[in-house]
Design a protein around this nucleic acid. Sequence first.
RNA 1: GACCCCGUAGCUCAGUUGGAUAGAGCGUGUGGUUGCGGACCACAAGGUCGGAGGUUCGAGUCCUCUCGGGGUCGCCA
Length: 552
Amino acid sequence: MIRSDLSALLAEGLSAAQAAGDIAKSPSVTFAVERREDDLADYSSSEPMRLARVLGAAPKDIADVIVKHMPHSPSVRTAEVAGPGFINLWLKDEWVFNQLPEIHQAGPTFGHTDIGDGLRVQVEFVSANPTGPLTAGAGRGGVVGDALTRILRAIGYEVTGEYYVNDAGYQVELLGLSVYHHYAAALGHEAPFPTDGYLGDYISRWAAQIADEDNDRWLNDEKPTKPSAFEARAVGIALNEIKRDLEDLNIEINSWFSEKSMRDRGDIESVLDSLEKGGHVTRRDGAVWFVGGDGVNDRENVLVRSRGDPTYFAADIAYHQDKLERRNFDHVIDIWGADHHGHVPRVKAAMAALGVDREASKLEILLTQMVGIRIDGELGRQGKRSGKFVTLRQLLDEVGPAATRYFFLSKAMDSQMVFDLELAKREDPENPIYYIQMAHARCAGIERTAKNIPAPEKSSNKNWLTKDDGELLRLLLAFPEILVDAGMHREPHRLTHYLLSLARTFHSYYNKHRVVTEDESLTLQRLSLIGAVRQTFANGLELLGIDAPERM
RNA sequence: GACCCCGUAGCUCAGUUGGAUAGAGCGUGUGGUUGCGGACCACAAGGUCGGAGGUUCGAGUCCUCUCGGGGUCGCCA
């Protein structure tokens, strides 16, 4: 990666200067180097200004001395001191040009690095209750989690994407009773509808499906025979719809973790036992409460209800212990909806209490903010139990998976967003995803036009690079850095913005320079560049889970 | 009341561990493009970064206060 190479070069410059006695000694320094998108430099570092105090010298003098002692590098054309103490670095065109074959050689793995060092990471996302179809908001978490998973893999982590299925507990009981009410009705019987039952249209749809397929198999007067089996039947239908939605949105789940099977193993009892032994439990009003650790002024939360069944919180503690201890992931990332934010401190406190993650360093919880859906200019309220919400399916049917993913991935996850259905439905250039896909298709189109031209040989002519070729190629070389930043900051939208910027640069280039011309040598060189551009779009879109069409 | 997120161009949003003149898309205006696809390109207008203090060489970015919008505070999940 260019950025880290330059950083090392500057560090060498500093130590050489220190060895020569030109500047005071210091502990080793990591030079922050940033890529510039203006015309001040290709890359720059402001480290000298930060070093001023430590080294007891003026920033400008520090920068001067570093530049003076910096070893020669084949990639650097010039290094100069600017402003109050910046070091500006320019890449050598010849070196930039020589990176092109490397991009082609890496092919589908161009941009990938191994800085993750094979660390085992779990990303848990969506995990919506199987008590109804996925909401549009769940789509946001799903898309962000899926893209993050892909990006982390590309930078060298071994990642498992998991969906935690809440297929047990009170909400599932409610689902079963709600569906049963309609099921019985469909067969001409009566069963009570539960208080706080689910009101969505899909409930009667599922009931009709069960009545149709199973006839009177579950029928009894007021309650289903084998109620837990009936619940499982309803949950099964829900999960099928969820899986189909995720599949159509190009989201891959490696592992479906069943809460029910965890409960059946007795994990909750054993975790409660551990908490009790650690003195983190108190009893009051017939219920069992969790007491936060070490004088933390945290509210107490119920683990076991007075009627005897464990809460979602208790199950979640067992689940996270399973991830962090039994399955021993090096790092766990949970992606939750913002409405769960109050739950974050409790779970972390419980993990600390269990001694599973005392430093609170292994469990990382990210929150995706609310998604408002605007239909016909109206911003409606969303609620699964009321049955009033926009489903992910509606989004997919009306907008399509590419635009849906792009829209969710173009904004930072911690900012609230409004999904304007009418706007997103329009298939005009307003939607930047077409602009990006078009760039890829154009590259492919050029390659089709040139397909009877022999493959580029090793070039002897290195003066072909215009400023525009160099700009385009420099942008390609930034791709690996973008992936590292997007992964390490957990911000997939950085990749989205990069691709948009690359598309802009490419379209501009395309409009200005013809690739396939009479000049065979030049044509071959530019074909190689265009091939690298196409590869970068393909790789980037793949990580976003968006298809890269050859034609549009 | 407590806590979380947001507030940047007309609209939707970026802004890289705090760095040099605040960016993009859409919209608006003007112009270009007989070519590898016109789903394109170039140029322009448009900003007290909600407000006030503070931290320091330097703040859209960090801290405090404050205003506005959204969210969460259950023996629901």
